[in-house]
Amino acid sequence: MSLLQVKRLGKSYDLETKVLKDISFDVEAGEFVSIIGPSGAGKSTLLRSINRMVEINEGHVIFDNNDVGSLKKKELRQLRTDIGMIFQHYNLVPRLSVIENVLHGRFGYKTTIQGILGRFTEDEKERAFYLLDKLGIGEHAYKRCDQLSGGQQQRVGIARALIQDPKLVLCDEPIASLDPNTSKIIMDHLQSIVSELNITCIVNLHQVEVAQTYSDRIIGLKAGEIVFDGPTPWLTDDRIHHIYGTETRELITG
């Protein structure tokens, strides 16, 4: 069975507009999937429905044989330990050190008290340093995060996700705030997560070329609906125009 199944998912924040309409797709373990589409298409909402950071209104998300929408609070917490998340703005605690931020990824496995007292095992600490070295920021482990560059902060974010030992990593516009060179470093790291650690990756992107370079498969979202879903080579220029069609026209006339 697939690692992730999204079945007829629907979502609206208010009564008037449906942000997601009848979304269905499966993701196999080890896939690198990009979701592309103009801004406002519903990419972030779709990603957050998978780990239920937003509530699902219609349909189902089945992750690792769990119906995500029907989980109780504690079960949901447990499920989230299997899903790492990476954000456009890194979402670190800026005043805390790099290593502290990385270890935050272990909270899901701990009791409240263990977490508050900062009781981490030697294994966990070793793993944190190992990941930081692997991501090339080992020497910054004791620096405060707000002293790092954007690219370095994003690598802290990746380390925090990986220390969860996740089966799936969700990335919401991970390179949207970074320059092209730094973006390449980050995307290369994400690629090696999939190829070396065999962790599944779903990445929201608005740069089509980047999606084409890195992903096995691309899903095109437009106004809350899937308008393309297939292996990367199938994404022709025509189809790209179809996904972004209205937006480019708006850009020209507006």
Binding site: R77, R80, H89, G108, I116, A161
Partner: peptide, 15 residues
């Protein structure tokens, strides 16, 4: 933003 990230890792409210 940090609250969002930690919620997504499965951390508890008091953590």
């Amino acid at each position: 933003s940090a609250v969002e990230a930690l919620t997504a890792t499965g951390a508890t409210y008091f953590q």
